[in-house]
Simulated scan of single mutants.
Amino acid sequence: MRKLTYFIATTVDGFIGAPDGDADFIYSYVDSEFIGLLTAEYPETISAAGRKQLGIEDAPPKRFDAVIMGRNTYEPGLKAGLPSPYGHMREQYVVSRSLTTPPDPQVRLISGDLVAAVREMKARDGLGIWLCGGADLAAQLADEIDEYVVKTYPVVVGTGMPMSRAGFGVRPLELTGCTALGGGQVVTSYDVKR
């Protein structure tokens, strides 16, 4: 069975974006060492445009062959002329009630029962499924997430969009990996204890 992994960037105090959802401030904490880690361990999480710029457009997926993102996560790429940001993956999903047709033939829309759709995806053969963002999707899928990979940047912002809007609930995790980088970034991975 495939795993659903919430692979997300956050501040030390647990925010993935500003109060309006903008996360551009995070990019100032992305350096060459961090890009090297992504390229080596998670090449499929780099957008098609970024992969081309880095010369890794032919790098095979290592962990994920499907990505799920919310409309707000998808929108910036769409506005920048990237209607298929992860076209190198086997499956791209956008969760939206407002989009009625996919902006690109490689993008599939989920407008109905998200949990049922994810359970069906998990039952199919393949690599893992990357939950790309954001807080509302993480809340809706809280009981379906099997793993967290958290990229923590060395910054505190005080308020903003949280990693999840799931509300209070004790969800035990098991630490499975931790990598500290020279720029102060820390990448931790956790399996969900069931």
Rank of each mutant, 00 (worst) to 15 (best):
N72H: 04
I110K: 02
K193Q: 14
L173Q: 12
V150I: 15
L137W: 11
A166N: 13
L137M: 08
V30M: 14
S98G: 09
G36T: 03
D113S: 10
G36D: 13
I68T: 05
V118L: 07
P102T: 09
V192W: 13
R108S: 12
L141S: 11
E41Y: 01
F7E: 08
Q106R: 10
T39M: 12
G160Y: 03
M121T: 07
T179A: 14
V12F: 12
G50P: 06
G21F: 00
P172N: 13
T100R: 08
D58Y: 13
Q185A: 14
S189L: 02
G158W: 15
D58K: 09
M1Q: 09
G55D: 09
D146H: 06
R2N: 10
V186R: 03
M1L: 12
P61Y: 02
I110Y: 04
G50F: 05
G70P: 03
I145D: 10
Q53W: 00
I68V: 13
L141G: 13
D191C: 03
D191K: 13
Y93N: 03
A139G: 07
I35H: 00
I46T: 11
C132I: 10
V107D: 11
F15I: 12
E174T: 11
G36Q: 04
G17P: 07
K62I: 02
R97N: 08
A117D: 09
A59V: 02
M89E: 11
M161W: 00
I46Q: 09
R63C: 04
A18V: 08
V157N: 05
D136G: 05
V94D: 07
D143R: 01
V115W: 00
I26N: 06
P76L: 05
Y42Q: 02
L137A: 08
K3I: 05
A116D: 10
K193G: 01
E33P: 02
K3C: 09
V187D: 08
Y93E: 06
K3Q: 14
S164W: 03
Y153N: 12
V155T: 12
G87I: 05
D58H: 14
Y190E: 03
T39H: 04
D113G: 11
S28F: 00
Y86V: 00
T5E: 12
Y27D: 14
G81F: 00
E44H: 13
A135Y: 04
A117Y: 01
G55A: 06
R194Y: 05
G126F: 15
G77R: 05
G134N: 06
D113H: 01
S189I: 02
M89Q: 13
L175G: 12
A166E: 15
M89I: 02
D125V: 01
D143W: 00
L4S: 09
I35D: 06
